[in-house]
């Protein structure tokens, strides 16, 4: 099986309101796929469609090779899901919820749940209504991971998690991928997706704008390099003709040159090599800028 999620012409309208429009999405087996877009772009709509919580207006959805609607029960046995708008059974304890969901899955997940909870530093013995929002999010992760699903569908999973726990969560995702399982993760935080995903899909105003591998994006990412020279550059700017250079600026009476480069920086360094360089600062390729080039290509108004 090559695709764990495949949607064809997936369209969802809530009455007159657009949810998603003609979405053709493919998540391959064994990959972590990041689903990026601003709030309201249609990320949660897409994820809820995959779980058969809402039904498409048009289009087809296959999850783990089966129809999302007719085979929903079989699919949900093999999928772990973390909803975006998180609400929980407030009067249960963490243990209650884990046992209840384990029973609904027909398997003993107590030990696995305990392990995940320990990694996330979550006390399962307390009542959910006494949990902070971060702890609720951790419990939601526990129930999504505890049955070792073949596919994880996670809607903004790092909401309300503190940075240390986020790092642990990223390690858990790495392990999931190492096990050959797949992850579909939505986020509006770009560095997060850069850290965990193999490929990203960018959704905006309900439409899939682009699908890229992180490696390709990184190769295309813009890098900002700042040279400080011992002697001012006089009349010539040595960087304007260098391949890959997007823009340059000469500052501080010719002592400083800022260069924005796409791709390898070797040619830029060689162009500077004839002069005495006092210092060099390189701002690493920010994927945000690579993304922004897509965003700018799309008209802003829906």
């Amino acid at each position: 099986m090559d695709a764990v999620i495949r949607t064809t012409g997936l369209t969802k309208y809530y009455g007159e309101t657009r949810g998603v429009e003609s979405l053709d999405l493919e998540v391959r087996s064994g990959e972590v796929f990041g689903f990026i877009g601003p709030n309201g772009a249609g990320k949660t709509t897409t994820l809820r469609l995959l779980l058969d919580l809402i039904r498409p207006t048009r289009g087809r959805i296959e999850v783990l090779g089966q129809d999302a609607r007719t085979a929903s029960l079989a699919i949900r046995r093999r999928v772990g899901y973390l909803p975006g708008e998180l609400a929980m059974f407030a009067t249960m304890t963490g243990y209650d919820l884990v046992r209840f969901f384990g029973a609904l899955r027909g398997r003993d997940t107590a030990r696995a749940a305990g392990n995940v909870a320990e990694r996330l530093d979550l006390d399962l013995s307390r009542r959910i209504k006494d949990y902070s929002s971060g702890n609720r999010q951790k419990l939601a992760l526990v129930q999504a991971f505890m049955h070792d699903p073949e596919l994880l569908i996670l809607d903004e999973p790092t909401n309300a998690l503190d940075p240390l726990i986020q790092q642990e969560f990223y390690r858990m995702l790495d392990e999931v991928r190492d096990d050959g399982h797949s992850v579909f993760i939505s986020s509006h935080v770009l560095p997060e997706v850069e850290r965990v995903a193999d490929r990203v899909g960018i959704i905006r105003h309900g439409t899939l704008v682009a699908v890229e591998s992180i490696a390709d994006l990184k190769a295309r990412a813009l890098r900002r390099i700042e040279f400080r020279f011992a002697a001012p550059l006089t009349d010539v700017n040595p960087f304007t003709q260098v391949p890959g250079v997007k823009s340059t600026a000469i500052l501080d009476d010719g002592l400083v040159a800022q260069v924005v480069v796409e791709g390898p920086v070797d040619a830029v360094l060689k162009a500077a090599a004839g002069r005495e360089v006092v210092s060099l600062v390189s701002h690493d390729g920010d994927l945000e800028e690579a993304f922004l080039s897509y965003y700018q290509a799309v008209p802003d108004a829906p």
Partner: peptide, 14 residues
């Protein structure tokens, strides 16, 4: 209304 149905229906129950 409480928003818990999504989580319940994420489990294999019809």
């Amino acid at each position: 209304d409480r928003g818990t149905m999504d989580l319940l229906l994420a489990q294999p129950v019809t």
